[in-house]
Write a protein that binds this DNA or RNA. Structure first.
Lengths: 235, 235
DNA sequence: AGGAGTTTGTGAACGTGAGAACAAAACCGA
DNA sequence: TCGGTTTTGTTCTCACGTTCACAAACTCCT
């Protein structure tokens, strides 16, 4: 372990590790619910569907939270990862675009339990402003700035059609949002310092289709397709 | 370019490239709609939000479809990528779990236009079997095998709660499905030869939260956060 | 107290991906 | 026909991520 200047956490965790920490967190939550108090890296790796060596290396970036010969304390490790990710308190989030997807997102119960709180639903269509979705009023898109200021929102979710996505992005950035989760099938331009993550159903399906095609056309009995990720069971 | 044994496409395209091909395909569709007939790697890279060198290298895995000094024929390249991915014809798809998310997926218009066709909506809850969603009947989960056989379905989408995901997976695999897109927050166990891709809203948000926390706590004026992916505009 | 058995944390080897740079190949104008 | 210009396809190098393998450190049993 490299020298730590203060009592704070270590810096520069690899991006690939950051992407797995939420998976570990969820696996730990499951273990907690089952009443498990201690687990080995092998146990947790199995529950998270990864290699145990990779899991240990990932956790080592956070610090030495395990005990050799014993394993990890489930509750303690859960807290440490939650703290590292920053979900020990809830993050306020706004959702823009209350179509089919926006409805589903607004109703998504996992928000609250996983460190997020929807503070506003926004839509440009005035005919929707009467609605209430998941107990939250749908408000005019023009209110974005006010809402962001009022609640200190840093994270925005875009669930609009592609054509509107860039305009929504620009307005979000202007109002002070610095992290965007984009469900619209469009490439967004953002200034430095703003993070964008993209979730795209069509792309995921097309990646599957590519592999599916390979399986079919390669050979009826295909030799070279050992399952992209042979995972272990959890739920 | 390495020797090609037959007239078929080259083998073993890197996974990272496969994941970007759908992005290029979409960018090309946009260019087609705009009436553009030819584009340079720089143009297309801009529209897709990637480095032009990376784009050229990606395309080189498919073959030499460009012309030096000129660029790429938009329509021709679009077809070649579509063929490589395997979306020149529609893939039949089943969706299991018609909750909020299932509804949104069933209504998603991008399916049809991007090489997929929803042939069935399945739900275990009998009270939903009267419903029609997006013009498609909701059918009992028990009909899965029959539907898969009848339509030759290879791709399944899981939009159930986490607790049901593994059972649904097992039934899908048993019925002959070999590619699964999983929206449930659970790690799925599948036999070799079956591909699983996972889409997880909570994980994406938590990754954003991590970076957001770093921006905030690091320093008010943060030196080391040059925007994860400074993308170019398209839509 | 001491040795056997476990399990973590990490150093080192390996594989994959990204980006710079350039040669090869096309077009264009004289 | 020939040189200049443009743009692709490819090679090379570097950085990142994964996996192996093992020393360090802890528990348990005698």
């Amino acid at each position: 372990m490299t020298a730590r200047t203060s009592t704070e956490t270590a810096r520069d965790i690899p991006e690939a590790t950051v992407a797995r920490l939420p998976v570990y967190l969820r696996a730990l939550t499951t273990l907690l619910d089952e009443g498990t108090t201690t687990c080995s890296s092998e146990d947790l790796a199995g529950a998270a569907g990864v290699n145990s060596a990779k899991l240990r290396k990932d956790l080592s970036y956070l610090g030495s939270y395990g005990t050799r010969g014993v394993g990890y304390d489930v509750e303690y490790l859960h807290f440490q990862i939650a703290r590292e990710i920053g979900v020990t308190h809830d993050w306020p989030v706004v959702i823009v675009g209350i179509g089919n997807l926006g409805h589903a997102l607004a109703n998504f119960s996992g928000f609250r339990s996983r460190g997020f709180r929807v503070v506003a639903l926004l839509d440009a269509d005035p005919s929707r402003h009467e609605e209430q979705v998941a107990g939250i009023d749908v408000r005019p898109f023009a209110d974005l700035g006010e809402i962001v200021r009022e609640h200190g929102v840093a994270i925005g979710v875009i669930a609009t059609p592609a054509a509107a996505a860039q305009d929504v992005t620009d307005a979000m950035v202007a109002s002070g949002i610095t992290s965007i989760l984009n469900f619209a099938p469009a490439v967004l331009a953002v200034p430095p310092g703003v993070d964008v993550r993209k979730v795209d159903l069509s792309i995921e399906l097309q990646i599957l289709a590519y592999h599916e095609q390979r399986k079919a056309q390669g050979d009826p009995a295909d030799p070279s397709e050992p399952a992209e990720a042979p995972e272990e069971a959890t739920a």
